[in-house]
Design a protein around this nucleic acid. Structure first.
Lengths: 215, 215
DNA sequence: GTCTATAGCAGGATAGAC
DNA sequence: GTCTATCCTGCTATAGAC
């Protein structure tokens, strides 16, 4: 299903560099001049391809951030396709996806910095993120988790549980400078595995058990 | 111990408005003109009182953010002064402090937005925050928690536990737009109490118990 | 200490040649 | 589609009158 017509390479490079710079410095902290220079394009290229700086920002979310986030979502669907997962596999899958479901370390940083910034100052991108990614993740998570919970737990309680799991995943990714400052650890492969284990175990102990018992 | 010489009211208003605007829009997103206009001062007042926009930003952290954070820290010290607290009281105290240890809702938002932004793009302020606030909180938390943990738990594991507790507190404060979008709840008094209860219970179940058992 | 005036530069956006 | 040239606004910072 490959496209025969190649997408405009200048446009693609603009999106790449814009994502990197927006993630690093935020929307207001980056100038169009900086983006076009980094992309080896001319100043007017942004206005030609996207109409405005703001539209370029939204395009980064629509064409870069969202597709990547959807790939993470697919991991949950693949897990669910194999039958009802144990809570442990559920939590571990989602955690690992956020830690390893990226091409490389730089991509993971960009991805989390962007969502982090958008949570900081909610704009049009946040509603896009919530409806297209966050809510689907929560819905799937809730559906797969609820069979394991005792009957008394209401939906809002489950939502808060999921928030407590997800917020750890997010924090250990975008709070990296603070985590490094306090632990002295760099985010190498070993430390990432340790964090995934920690978040999984912490969250599993915290989730009230009921229904079927596993292993 | 009241100061006889009143602090310069223009300077104070500049700090107030700068904090509000920096928290809302970030350093690059605010202009000196906007700050001075909001403070009813003249454009050159920032340079007169602080030398530069950047110094004003640092002054906001030193003279507004840090003193407030230290007041939260004092709550831990007052708790510890009454003897070794149960883990439940420890977690509840720190959680409640972050949710209610502020003059009003606006002040709490500003406080969390500022730290959130600084975690987003670490600058000089972050090292100040880590050394003056985060590390002391972690040290006290660890010292008060360790007696309750089983002997096998090493220091790094405890540090990760504390991160998982603190990150929930932070997230439910600065991730407010997302939490509201997914729960439909506004942050009124009732919901805040619910969140404090949720974080406390979630974290307590997750902490491995050992040593003395309470109640 | 406060205000005016302005330097000096960087910002986003656009029109029009090629 | 790309590049040049340019508009005009807004920015931080400073010098100097009062």
């Amino acid at each position: 299903m490959r496209q025969t017509t190649q997408p405009d390479p200048t446009r693609e490079r603009l999106l790449d560099e814009a994502e990197r710079l927006f993630a690093d410095k935020g929307f207001a902290g980056v100038s169009v001049r900086e983006i076009t220079a980094a992309a080896g394009a001319h100043l007017s290229a942004v206005n030609y391809h996207f109409g405005s700086k703001h539209n370029l920002y939204l395009a980064v979310f629509r064409e870069r951030w969202l597709p990547r986030a959807r790939r993470i979502l697919e991991r949950l669907d693949r897990l669910a396709a194999r039958g009802l997962p144990r809570p442990e596999d559920l939590v571990r899958t989602i955690t690992e996806a956020f830690f390893s479901g990226f091409a490389d370390d730089a991509e993971r940083r960009r991805h989390h910095q962007l969502i982090h910034r958008e949570m900081c100052r909610p704009g049009e991108a946040l509603s896009l993120i919530v409806e297209e990614v966050t809510r689907p993740i929560f819905d799937r998570f809730r559906r797969l988790l609820e069979p394991h919970l005792p009957p008394g737990v209401d939906e809002e309680e489950v939502t808060l549980y999921i928030f407590s799991v997800i917020c750890q995943v997010l924090f250990f990714n975008f709070g990296r400078p603070m985590v490094t400052a306090l632990t002295g650890r760099t985010y190498d492969e070993q430390f990432r595995r340790l964090l995934v284990e920690h978040i999984t175990r912490f969250s599993l102990r915290a989730l009230p058990r009921g229904g079927e018992e596993d292993s």
